[in-house]
Design a protein around this nucleic acid. Sequence first.
DNA 1: TAGTCTATCCCTACGATGTAAGGTGTCAAC
DNA 2: GTTGACACCTTACATCGTAGGGATAGACTA
Lengths: 243, 243
Amino acid sequence: MPEKLEHLENESVEPTQGDGETSTLRRREPLTRERILRAALRVMDEEGLEAVTMRRLGRELGVEAMSLYNHVEDKEAILDGILEVVMAEFQFPEETGDWEADVRAGARAWRRLMIDHPTVIALFAESKHPASSPERLRPMEWAFDLLGRGGLSEDEVVHAFRAFGGYIMGSVLNEVANPVPGMGDRDHHAEHVQLAGELPPTEFPNLVRLLPLMAECDAEVDFEFGLDLLISGLRAKVEASGA
Amino acid sequence: MPEKLEHLENESVEPTQGDGETSTLRRREPLTRERILRAALRVMDEEGLEAVTMRRLGRELGVEAMSLYNHVEDKEAILDGILEVVMAEFQFPEETGDWEADVRAGARAWRRLMIDHPTVIALFAESKHPASSPERLRPMEWAFDLLGRGGLSEDEVVHAFRAFGGYIMGSVLNEVANPVPGMGDRDHHAEHVQLAGELPPTEFPNLVRLLPLMAECDAEVDFEFGLDLLISGLRAKVEASGA
DNA sequence: TAGTCTATCCCTACGATGTAAGGTGTCAAC
DNA sequence: GTTGACACCTTACATCGTAGGGATAGACTA
């Protein structure tokens, strides 16, 4: 429903057509930080980070670039804002009482978020200030809460949070920067296989053998493998400290 | 020793001073793809990714921006090239025969590389093409070889590689994007603690309690924790499939 | 030695970027 | 009706990546 509105505005781009119509009551949907951020996220998802320019966002909203500055500090503020919007989309999984299953579901939810907006990884990698808005903090709070219910010490909760967070972040980064099929373009499959074929087999025997395998494997299965590793490691830790 | 040369060149910036001196034998160190990439890496390490511009690299090498195009295709090619140079720095740890210790050492070596050049994470996140140069592939080959000697199936080797790679990538990304003390600026410590103090404690009880803890924890210890998780998970997997 | 070739480098210019500074219009309150 | 606040527009600037085209110097031919 908000999309509808925004598309309508795309058509009211006529620049300063100062006829009598300008004096109608509702000239146009007023600009908002909210609307700017949503447009930015949409452009970023559809055309990548480099398409997100002030002029482009202005065009998208039927407004000149400079008008955006009445609602946001900076372009950087927009980029930070995108992270907010994305994090606000976090789908808190409902809890089952099975701790390991819940941790797994939480990790998947987090991954889903990044996969749905792959470019946010680049945003994270460039972002200057650490998270501070409630939207970005709420999923963290939830994760801490969940981890805390598994019998870990406070230190271990913090460490586990960063371990899982790191793994999720990184595996999505790898998946996005070095895509494998199962999700996304299949081009890279052929690319990998071809690369493996061209490599000098004496110098790169393992790559020659395993690169095609890697190209074949499904991204989600892959993610689950590492997740299993982490969770079984965590279980061992809990059992050890419990005994 | 190459650094010496490059610094000397910084001082020969005089633009087109067409006096008789131009006819001396060795006018200046000739430009090379190699030299361009090294300069780019240096600028990036010292002043961040946005300082890496064609004009800036030219200035750094005593040359006009456009001259760079005789040796590299694109700015993007330079960025890809930086990854090459960095990966060529990979310090292969010497192997001890203890598989787990070797895996651990490999992971640390990989992390060290990223920590020494934190901005490469952003490069990875934006890079279009997957790795293809031998410099970037050699550490991969080595890692595959190492993992393969632990009793894993080929599928498991691939999965383990991606799991460890993801974890390393992501934990460095988190460390760099959301720095904690122990390495780097201590400012963010105070920032975290202050943030925790300002948060509404009823909505964010865990963050209020754990954020200061997180700010205190050492990045390396943190990394080791996740590494332990992964390795002990892997051990369990090896034992299970061996039995 | 003179002439030509080719690689390397410089110069100029174009469109696009983020944003500072200041102008224009509209509406609410007096 | 006047005023002030606010949202928006216009113009202008420095800086970016890079296309196009000259200049120059060292190597090769004659």
